[in-house]
Design a protein around this nucleic acid. Sequence first.
DNA 1: GGATAGTAGTAGCATTTGACACCATGTCGG
DNA 2: CCGACATGGTGTCAAATGCTACTACTATCC
Lengths: 155, 155
Amino acid sequence: MSDVLRLDAFLPFRLSFTSNLVSDTIAGIYVALFDLRIPEWRLIAVVAEEEASPLGGATQQEIGRRTRMDKVTVSRAAIAMVERGLMARVAHPDDKRSHLLHLTDAGRDLYAQVAPKALELERRIFARFDAAELAAFTATLRKIDAAILAEEQAG
Amino acid sequence: MSDVLRLDAFLPFRLSFTSNLVSDTIAGIYVALFDLRIPEWRLIAVVAEEEASPLGGATQQEIGRRTRMDKVTVSRAAIAMVERGLMARVAHPDDKRSHLLHLTDAGRDLYAQVAPKALELERRIFARFDAAELAAFTATLRKIDAAILAEEQAG
DNA sequence: GGATAGTAGTAGCATTTGACACCATGTCGG
DNA sequence: CCGACATGGTGTCAAATGCTACTACTATCC
């Protein structure tokens, strides 16, 4: 960290730059292959994971918490998925305000295609990095998250 | 990199998550303090750097190339800055289609406030990291950029 | 047990952002 | 030089995203 501002070396800028590069690449591929926007495919990923949980699904609120997406974004993605027949809602057993999202058979089929493709993309981009470098990288990312969330707490 | 998909461990997701966290924090502060959106403050940063260059300013195209912002985004930010009296355009000596953006006195004054604030924010977020960790982190970011840009080239 | 405050989710509106079309100017091949 | 194509920049429109307000339901606390 220097004491003159050079945008090119300014960490928040670099982070945003790289993140956009990665996201745009992936977003384009997902739309082309599966007609899924990023929020939608995140929904699928979270719901697929949560189907193994005791409740057998995920609430929109849980999805928002885990992905830090706005609840409006989650709502819209959920509506789109239900309309496409990839997900269904069941009443939440303990709270009638809420629903549990789970995958339909069609949704599970799609997930079976989407997940390997995601991992393949990840490998293609990150193939040239060794495991230690990637581990250090993600560890730093998580430390940054923690630092900011702590700031937010503190105000 | 595992062979099952867990969103929480999926690198493109982690990257986007952290980047949004950082960007949102900074964006909020910049709007509150200076009424500057991110594209606008990037404009100021690039133009301030380029004023030292032979041409004494930056073209919008140059700004777009360096920040990877859409040329429309750059155009709008430039119009806003000129309207606010922070920047002015001078004719490009060699190309009448183009202009050079440079800072007005008011723009330079603002930059003198903005730049230290940016560095302070960066320090506040990244204070807990040692130099080696940050260096490794940014090196990895740049390698990711290179990997993706090479992919784009290849198609 | 009813008023009050809080939460899950949606709708409508405003803002932001990018895609596309366009104008003005510039460049290059003949 | 002059037509064909490329480039800098802006206007216009569509898509994406977030804010605010709202409905429906739940929890709490006298």
